[in-house]
Each structure stands twice: as C-alpha cells, then as structure tokens.
C-alpha cells in the first residue's frame, strides 16, 4: 500500500484533508493515527487567525458549504503546542500553510522547515473564504508560480501546492507550479458556492459565499484530477468528496498517487481507516499486489 510523493514515504495513499482533521488530536480518540498515510493539518498562518464570524457552515444536498476563514492557532503555537503530540506518532505530517502575502508564505514555510516533525508542506493557494491571499494566488498561474518559488526557496521539505477548482483551466495552474518547483499538487479545494435562506432572502452564511465539499463535488474533482494528471509529471494528490474505498481508488485510476479524505471525517470520524481497510480488501479480492498498479489506469478506449 506504500506510495511515494517526491521522497515523502506514505505507508498507504490515504491522508486527511486540511481543515477537516484539526491538528490530529481531535481524532486520536477515534482512530489510531499511526494507521494513516499522512495527516495534513489545518491551514497555518504566521499569526493566529480569528476566522470568519458565524454562521460558518450550511448543509447542502450531498455536501456542505463552509466559510471558516482559516481560524488557526498560528505557526508558532502550532510548533510549540500541537506538533509535539503529532511527533509521537509514526505518520507523515504535512503542514498546510497560508499567507496574506508571498513574504508571509515564506516566513511560515521557514518556521516549519526548522521544526522537527514536519515532513512536507502543502501550500494553500486556494482558500475561497479569506479576503487576502488564498484564492487570489491560486486563480492565476503566474501568482501561483511565484508563491511556489518563494516557498521552494525557503525549504528542503517536499512542497505540495493545493489547487483551486475555481478556475477555467486548472491544468495551466498545475503546470505553472510544477515549473516553479512544486514537488506535487493536491486538488481540489472547495468549489465556491452559495446557499439562500428563502425566509429571510439572505445567505445562510455570514460570509455570504462558502466552499462546497462532500460527495456532491466528486465528479468535478475526478475530472480535474484526470486533466491535471495528464498535464504534469509530478505526483497528483486527489481529493473531493471521497467517502469510501471505491471513491479513493477511482481517484487513483484517473491518475492520483495518493488521496485526501476530508468532509467524510465529519460524518464518520473513522472514515480514513475504514477507507484504508476497504482499499486493502479491494486489492486482495482483485489480486492486485501493489496499490500503485491502480494509478493512472483510466481506460477511455
């Protein structure tokens, strides 16, 4: 079940998606974190962030909208208070980083590269719920490449760039960050959406718009992972609405080397380990020796 993302060894292809798994400790009562391929922690900024005012979430058909706005403890407190706990597990820890400017991305990357226990960085250029940074970097290939170069220059850790689906040509952004030195790309972040309260004729979210996640977005995610996997040579990490092992394997078939499980954690805190178990079972039943044999086997003939 082992896979390799630019030198980052994962004991299986299943990681948690940033923002859906806290700092790991929130789920350690439910599952053995050692069983995971990797843990991607909640997006970290240079300073602690308050996040957006509530209401922040709204259920939608087959998913949910969120506009949390990257509420997080900040990189220093993360290193001091959250990382020691994660170090006690034998699991790849991927820090998701966010900045309001390129300089902030660089500072966060530098701080995490010096800390022990972080195995890779995932650069968030795709959060739709913050005013500065986030999506404004990820929606433009040049800006995304520029952030990637800054982070690349600050760290020896593998750099994963997390892409937004809220663009016309996601493959163009993927190629741009690959050229800028990204070791891998992960996709998709949430799709910008809106939910209307007919009683008040207002939005359900205080932020008005939010990011759509959950099984509702899976077809869009699969299409984009497929497109990106054909356009770049670096590994692709697929996500978007994965609920079970079959979903995860579909992402691998269209070209993902690994996957991230996000919103599924909300309805089932054991989702990740159940998906890992389900994938192992699938491989066994279908007499497939190595999960890597699944990658990019999409058959369009």
């Amino acid at each position: 079940m082992e896979v390799n993302i630019a030198g980052l060894r994962l004991k299986n292809p299943v990681m948690t998606a940033s923002g859906t798994f806290g700092y790991g400790e929130e789920y350690s009562d439910y599952i053995d974190l050692n069983e995971l391929g990797g843990i991607v922690v909640k997006g970290l900024s240079l300073k602690p962030r308050l996040g957006n005012p509530p209401p922040r979430i709204m259920e939608t058909t087959g998913g949910m909208l969120n506009a949390v706005g990257l509420q997080n403890v900040g990189v220093d407190l993360f290193i001091e208070q959250k990382l020691p706990f994660l170090r006690s597990f034998d699991v790849a820890v991927i820090a998701n980083i966010y900045g309001e400017s390129e300089a902030e991305y660089a500072q966060v990357a530098r701080a995490l590269s010096r800390a022990s226990g972080v195995h890779a960085l995932e650069v968030n250029v795709s959060c739709p719920n913050v005013k500065k940074g986030g999506l404004s970097f990820g929606a433009d290939p040049k800006a995304a490449a520029s952030v990637t170069r800054r982070v690349r220059a600050e760290t020896d850790l593998p750099v994963i760039v997390k892409l937004t689906p809220n663009v016309t040509d996601i493959a163009a952004v993927a190629r741009a960050v690959e050229e800028a030195g990204a070791d891998a790309v992960s996709l998709i972040n949430t799709l910008t959406g809106l939910s209307v309260d007919l009683t008040t004729r207002g939005p359900h979210l205080k932020n008005i718009t939010g990011g759509l996640s959950g099984p509702a977005i899976k077809p869009v995610a699969l299409r984009m992972v497929w497109q990106v996997a054909q356009s770049v040579d670096i590994p692709v990490i697929g996500m978007g609405g994965i609920l079970d092992a079959e979903d995860a394997l579909e992402f691998m078939v269209v070209g993902a080397t690994a996957v991230q499980v996000g919103t599924a954690n909300f309805i089932n805190p054991r989702a990740t380990v159940e998906i890992i178990g389900g994938m192992e079972h699938y491989l066994k039943v279908h007499q497939i020796k190595d999960v890597r044999e699944m990658i990019g086997t999409f058959n369009v003939a």
Partner: peptide, 27 residues
Amino acid sequence: EERMACATGACMGCVVAVRGEQGALAY
C-alpha cells in the same frame, strides 16, 4: 445550539463569539 458538522472540534464550523483572554473576541 449551532449548525454542526464534525462535533469533534476539528471543522470550526459551529463557533460562537465569546470574550476570550483579556476580553478579546474569540470564536
């Protein structure tokens, strides 16, 4: 009561505004 998703404390979806340390706003 708030709309809730994960109920484990991970998603930060169900927050309310309170006075945190030194009376500052915290969610």
